[in-house]
Amino acid sequence: MNWEAFATTLRLATVTSLILLIISLPLSYWVAFSKWRFKFLVEAVVALPLVLPPTVLGFYVLMAMGPKSPFGRLYERLAGHGLPFTFEGLVIASVLYSLPFSVQPMAAAFGSVDRKYIEASWMLGVSNLGTFFRVIIPQSWAGVITGLVLSFAHTVGEFGVVLMVGGDIPGVTRTLSIDIYDQVQSLNYSSAALTSVVLLIISFVILSIVYGLNRKGWLFVANRGHRQAI
C-alpha cells in the first residue's frame, strides 16, 4: 500500500470536490432556473466529461495549460512555474472532469423544489439570493451532498486525465489509480491487489452514502425524529 499516493489522492479529491461545490451551487441554480433558449448548449458542455475519453479531455487541458496557450503563459508569469505535471494543474483538470457529477444532482434537486415555495418566499419579501439559501438549499440537501460526494468519488477514481495532465510524480501527482497501474506494470500483483481493495471499499462506502441519502424522505425523517409518525 502506497501511503504517499493515498494521501495525494485524498488531497486531490478533497480540494477538487470543495472547489466544485463552490462552482456548482451557482452553476446548478442557473441550469435549473434559467430560461435562456440556448441553455441546452451549456448543459451539453457540462455533461461532456461523461462521454469524452479522459485522454481527450486530458489532451485539451494539457494544451490549454502549455506554454503555447495564453492561459498557460499567464499562469507561468504569475506563479513562476507552468501548470502541467503539478498538483494545481491536476486540480484544474479534475474540476473539469468531475463537473457533471457535481452539477447534475444539484441542478436536479434545485429544479424539483416545488415552485410554490419559491414564490411564497418572494411574496414574503425575500430576494432570489435569500430564497436560494433559505428555501432551495434546505430542501435540496440530499442533492447537494450527493453532488459533493460523487465528485469526490469520481476524482478518487480518475486515471486517464491524471496520467495526461499530472504525469506520475510521487508525492505530487501519483494517485492510487496510477500507483495500481505502476504496480501491475512491475508485476507487483499483491500490492496492486491491496490498493485495489482499498479503492473498492472506499467507492462502495461512498455510493452507499449517496443511495442512503436519496432514499425517499430520509433527510426529513432524520430532521424530525419520530414526531412525524405520531
Binding site: G125, S127, F220
Partner: peptide, 21 residues
C-alpha cells in the same frame, strides 16, 4: 415592480408552508 417590493400578502391555494421550517 418585482413581487418582493409590492408589499402584497399572498395566500396560496394549498398554503405553501415551508416544510423544512
Amino acid at each position: 415592480i418585482p413581487p418582493q417590493r409590492r408589499s402584497v400578502g399572498y395566500l396560496f391555494q394549498d398554503y405553501a408552508l415551508f416544510p423544512h421550517l
